[in-house]
Structure formats: structure tokens, C-alpha cells
Design a protein around this nucleic acid. Structure first.
Lengths: 211, 211
DNA sequence: ATTCTGTATATTGTATACAAAATACTTTAT
DNA sequence: ATAAAGTATTTTGTATACAATATACAGAAT
């Protein structure tokens, strides 16, 4: 109860980062004891974080034999992607018109994305921030939270894809087309393009995974 | 580790049932100590269940002062309903044509719903089963799981509404119209009607809550 | 009476302890 | 050497212990 945030939340963040960094590799077992030792806290908050991560699809929990990092699997990625796509489209459709300043922020992020050469972390971070910024006005808080949480799954896939397939970014042109529709206040077209953006991204990742 | 299922899962189920029965009233505090005593197990698995329930929106977790049952709130219901509606529509759209036997099951459930006079539990159970049966063929497992989980929120509202507003059911005619479209293999119409079913249900519950 | 304040109690978040089960290791037999 | 079987060691799931904070209560001041 020291840092004003429960230890379980700090543990959650830290473990998640290790998964994303590949420090905890897909398929590898995650022992609460060793994490507790490494983070210098007890097993209890660690286990609470692990339980949460397994509910979110980052870890797998086999009864009696603990936790392991979920292996990357094309089917899972397609499934999560389809869900996230539908939810982001819903969020966009039910959002009020974005402020000009937010539109500016979106193009700014896109400029950032275009100028990156090979920083995977930064690319994924900006891609996610672009989506979050797009949906920042969505009045459905629960939906926004859910989308944020669900992003954890595709984020892992995008990261690996960018790193291993050597791709640099996930098409900023799509972003531009979406922004263009939003700017015209044509939410229907924007939603359609957002869905299309997801569909292409999923297909790109999927076919690479199944290679 | 006795019942072949982790205690935290049994605790989860039991606590959830108590919330639904109204045994744990909205707004009331939930003390892990007292639950542990009542269920005859330790606080650890109880807390794991409480943490999960708070992530699912059934309980609220205030840092340092424990858990309480979420109060019923029209906004929350509308938000969850909108999400669930979108996800069920997605599930329906991406499902293969249902087997005749499953269609039969759906009309059978509807007959059951129509014949109920005043059993709230049974009504809610059948309504939920109808939805689950409709989406049983959906190949996106993650989506099905997510829908099942999300149902916990509207279920609480429907239950209270039926009980306190004295309504008997949530319109089996809607179900019939959806089934009719599914039977014609017109998934677009079916999806549209399903969305409409949700919209009307949400509106009915919402205006009652805000009365 | 009502509000404040200090103290007792309860409850939380976290750490540790313990028993059952799983994994790793060693020894023995083939 | 390989395989099997039995034993030691980890690791898990759950229970309990403990310190810090929050709540409840009693008495004093207004």
C-alpha cells in the first residue's frame, strides 16, 4: 500500500511489459515465485495480476500447473481483431464530431508514424495512440475501457510482426482516408474505412502468421 | 483444490448468485472476511473472485476500502447494452446458417417464455438461453466467451425490472421476427432485427430506470 | 443536542506458512 | 546407455499472520 496504487496494479503493468518486450516469451511458464522475487514483493499481488492477465488473454492458466504466456496463434489474432474492429466501429459511430484540435493531433501522430525507420516500440505505441485519439470523444466509457483492454492482444501480434517481418508500419494511408471522412463529418464512411483498415491489418498479420 | 475446480471459481459463482438474488444489495459493501466465513474458505480465493467481479463491472473496488455491489445506473446499462448488442450482431453475422434443430430449440424456448406467468428467474434464464442458442454456431470462441461474460451486467437490470416493474417478459415477438429472418438465411435482416431488439430493450429498461 | 476528537475495533492489502500436486532428479534394472 | 520407479525438490492453491488504514464508538467541548 505504499505507492498509492495497489501492488497488484504495478505488478500487472510490469509483467505485461515483460511479455511485450519478449522478456517472457510465448509459451514459457510464468512462475509467481520467481516474479515475486524479482519484483521484491510477495506472491499474493503477483497472483492477482497473473489472474487478471489470464482473463485478458495474455496468459493461460492451467489448473494446478500455473500460468504460461499464450502462444501466438493466427486464429486468436483474427478473433480478437474482429471483436476490436466491431467495437472501435461502434465507438466511432456513437462519438460526436471530433474537435479540430483532435483532428490535428491525429495527423500529427501520422506524421510521426511516417517518419519512423525501425523503432518497433514507438511504431506500435503511435499506432495505438492514433486509435485511442480517434475514439477519445466516445461517450461510452465502458466501451472505451474495453477497447483499451482488448488492445493488449493485437499489440503483441503487431509488435512481433513488425520486428520479425521487418515491416515498418501499418499503412498510414488508411489513417489518412479515415481522417478525411471524419473531417467531412461523414461518420458512415469513416466507420466503413476503419473496419476496412482493421480487416486489412488482420489479413496481413494472419497470412504472415500462417506462412 | 478439493472440488476439482479452483475455489476461486466456486466462490465467483456463489457471490454472483448472491448478487443476482439481491442477497447482496446494490450499493452494499462486500467484506471478504464475512464471505470467507460464510463459505467456509479462506479470504484468498474470495478476494480473487471479488477482483474478477470488479473487473466485470458487477462490483466496484475502491482502493483501500474494499468492494461494494455496483448500484444500478441507467447510463451503465445503456453502455453495456450497446456493447453487447454490437457484439451479438457481429456474432450473428459471422455465424454459419444454424441447424434446423437449433431453430427448433429457439422456438421451443420462446414457447417457454410465453407460458411463464411470474417466475423472474426463469424468464431471465430463458431470455439469456435464447440469445446463447442463437449464437451457438459462432466460430469466434473468444467472442462467445466475451458475450457470455458481458451478459452479467444486463442480467441484473432485467431481473430487477421484471420484478419491480411487474413486467412478464421482454417481447417474444421480437424473437420470432429474428428467427423468421434467420430461417430465410437472411442474415442481414436477422442482424438488423437483433440490433433493434436490443435497442428497444435498452430503451424500455432505461426509461423505467430514469422514471 | 451536535460536532469534534481521541481511542478501540474492524477491514483492508500484503506477506508468509503449509499441504497437495507436479516436476526434476537419482538410482536401479534391463 | 535407456527406461522405470521411487525419492527429493519446486510450485502451486489455499490458509493464516501481520502491519497500515479506515470505520465505529465514546466522551468532551460547544
Amino acid at each position: 500500500m505504499l505507492g498509492r496504487k495497489p501492488l497488484r496494479d504495478q505488478a500487472y503493468q510490469e509483467i505485461l511489459e515483460r511479455v511485450h518486450r519478449g522478456d517472457l516469451a510465448p509459451g514459457s511458464r510464468v512462475r509467481d515465485t520467481s516474479l515475486a522475487g524479482q519484483l521484491g514483493i510477495s506472491r499474493t499481488p503477483i497472483r492477482e495480476a497473473l489472474l487478471r492477465l489470464s482473463r485478458e488473454g495474455v496468459l493461460a492458466a492451467d489448473i494446478g500447473r500455473g500460468f504460461s504466456v499464450c502462444r501466438l496463434d493466427a486464429t486468436e489474432m483474427r478473433e480478437s481483431g474482429a471483436i476490436l474492429s466491431a467495437l472501435e466501429v461502434l465507438a466511432l459511430q456513437t462519438s460526436p464530431d471530433p474537435t479540430p484540435e483532435r483532428l490535428g493531433r491525429l495527423t500529427e501522430i501520422d506524421r510521426g508514424l511516417a517518419s519512423i525507420r525501425s523503432d518497433v516500440d514507438r511504431t506500435v505505441g503511435l499506432e495505438e495512440e492514433w486509435h485511442r485519439t480517434l475514439l477519445l470523444g466516445c461517450p461510452n466509457h465502458r466501451l472505451r475501457d474495453m477497447i483499451d483492454n482488448l488492445w493488449q492482444v493485437p499489440r503483441r501480434y503487431i509488435r512481433v510482426y513488425l520486428r520479425e517481418a521487418g515491416r515498418v508500419s501499418l499503412s498510414t494511408q488508411h489513417h489518412a482516408r479515415i481522417i478525411e471522412a471524419v473531417r467531412r463529418n461523414d461518420r458512415t464512411a469513416a466507420a466503413e474505412r476503419l473496419a476496412n483498415h482493421w480487416e486489412r491489418g488482420i489479413e496481413e498479420l494472419g497470412s504472415w502468421l500462417e506462412r
